[in-house]
Amino acid sequence: MSTPRTWRPKPFIENPKLRWSITIGTLLYMLLALGSVEVNWMRVYEGLDRGLKFVAAFAQPNFTGRWTDISEGLAESLVMTVVSTVIGIIVSIPIALGASRNLAPLPVYLFCRSIITISRTFQEVIIAILFVAIFGFGPFAGVLTISFATIGFLAKLLAEAIENIDPSQAEAVRSTGSRWWQWLNYGIQPQVMPRLIGLSLYRLDINFRESAVVGLVGAGGIGATLNTAFDRYEFDTAAAILILIIGIVMFAEYSSSAIRKRVQ
């Protein structure tokens, strides 16, 4: 018996046919995809100048020029964030209960799961367009949009948490002869509460960022102001808005991680 003299690392995909077809397929796709990206280089060249202006604007953001617009837009965004997060949480909880296979009968489960799927599939802006068409321009459509998006996120993750509880704790509460609501309150709720609080805080943060976007389609918030600034090429105002958004998100993340540590 001879010892092998060469050694090569084992390939990630062992079957050579599959390995080669995946490699060639990927290369082919990359070629086709890159080939189909049409770039107007002249336009890009002209744009570079504006790009530099934008970068420069970040160094000198203009908060004062349109301060009334900015402050009103930001206030509206914050207000929308609060309202939509609260509504989203209130609606998500029953849907999460319905979407947990260990609590709900099959028809309820399927119904709640399909609400979650629809909410998760469509980007908020698409929902916002439809709601603006139905409810008219303004923050109300935005609030509904973000609440609806919250449901897809919160109900799904909460339902997962409920499905992963320790069933023996819930069983023990059931064996005392508790009612269904008492069982929920003593057997389930304590187990998922930290997760619910953590997810809600996280969602508050996401909802603020979303509230900056729905304004682009007329659903209220800072997005409209931002859109105008870009349309007028007022990069210094746009930079000011973006800096404020980043600052608020940083603050929200910092405080929510502090709160999450407390409720563990």
């Binding site: 990206v37 934008f54 682009l216």
Partner: peptide
């Protein structure tokens, strides 16, 4: 944090204004 705070739609808004519309 800057990248995470700003939605891709806003980034597009900015880039369309700089580079012009397109993929």
């Amino acid at each position: 944090v800057s990248s995470r705070s700003i939605n891709s739609l806003i980034w597009s808004l900015l880039l369309v204004s700089i580079l012009g519309p397109g993929v």
